[in-house]
Design a binder for these strands. Sequence first.
DNA 1: AGGATGACGTGCA
DNA 2: TTGCACGCCATCC
Length: 107
Amino acid sequence: MKPETYSFIMQVFDLARLIPEGRVTTYGTIARALGSAKSARLVGKAMNHSHGTIYKVPAHRVVNGSGLLTGKFHLTDPDQMQSLLEAEGITVKDNQVQYFKKVFCPP
DNA sequence: AGGATGACGTGCA
DNA sequence: TTGCACGCCATCC
């Protein structure tokens, strides 16, 4: 993934990077912000690509509409994702973000 | 060039 | 209320 290859994925990364610490957002929210409301899956796919990009994307701050850490298993270390969230003040229980409404970051 | 896929979301039974 | 099935659109094979 080259920097000049600005694509949908890059836009996702940029938005995800805007998420402040201690806050989380959903794939659908990001997708809508990009104009493709129904392409939430693309956002998830993009996050998966964040693996091989030089850009640092707080993928751990992005969860699904239910506050579930659906993608944690996809990361190098799923447990680390939860630890990162808790380190930012977000309570995670059973792959689920507690007080999701409070930490949710709307567009 | 075409077909299959996916870290989701919403609707319906 | 919980669970199942369909749709979506960019990316990958």
